[in-house]
Amino acid sequence: MTPAIELLQVSRRFRGSTLPVIAVDHIDLRIEPGEVVALLGPNGAGKTTTLDMVLGLSAPTSGSIKVFGMAPRAAVAAGRVAAVLQTGGLLPDLTVAETVEFIAATYSNPEPVMRVLDLANLSAISSRRVSKCSGGEQQRLRFALALLPRPDLLILDEPTAGMDVNARRDFWAQMHAEAREGRTVVFATHYLEEADDFADRTVLMSGGRIVADGPTEEIRAKATGRWVSADLADPARAIDRFGGQLVAQRFVVRAADSDSVALALLTEFGATNLEVVSGSLEDAFVALTEGAAK
């Protein structure tokens, strides 16, 4: 079967003030039709740059990108792929319905405007000016625009940024419905919970590279380990057994199963001042990136 997305050795460099900035560094990625994939990573990981190239909004510096076997721009023109962009602008002086009408007019056979307004729960505010809409309402409008071509692949770049808890929950409920219809959904996020709740597969990006790629539970286990630290009489032996390192005379190790490490340190190594802390997601990214570099 033709993959929904296929990236081969894709790089993207930008001109920086002194050195070129490598936003995306030789990544390979294959996403099959029907998959729901989270692109997880901190700010600056290269998520948006990658998605922009998949959508044909910018071209890779090197490497090849195919969307349903086509060049990205051709897939967009054919209405196979649509997106809700993080920084997708709207015209403030149009109404909600006019905005949908405008974008609908660019497609040869779009979903009817009324139906799209209904699906995105915008019917009640269809005659409201975009400038008078809240952030959540504008995001729903962007979502409505993405539904117009009845895309096979839906790309969402941090779709819930700026939404409150309720709006976020409603949005993901809507996305579940879209995925059940067999759409391929690829979304960028920096919330591990969003990847966990919604994606079957998570691709972890950091520093322009893919540092982990697999079932979401697996990535979650890697990313949610805890830091265990303690004062030890003989840290070298502990390093031999658990890995980790000495930081300011203290033994520090990152462990997926922190309980058993803590138990062993206390019972077998005579540890004192033991601490177990959960690292932030950023720490996890750093840990995984270092792992990938080795």
Binding site: L55, L57, A77, G79, G89, T106, Y107, R142
Partner: peptide, 16 residues
């Protein structure tokens, strides 16, 4: 100006 504010990206996602 309106393209620079992101409307250009929105239109870039259409066959236009």
């Amino acid at each position: 100006i309106e393209r620079a504010t992101g409307w250009g990206r929105q239109l870039g996602l259409t066959p236009l």
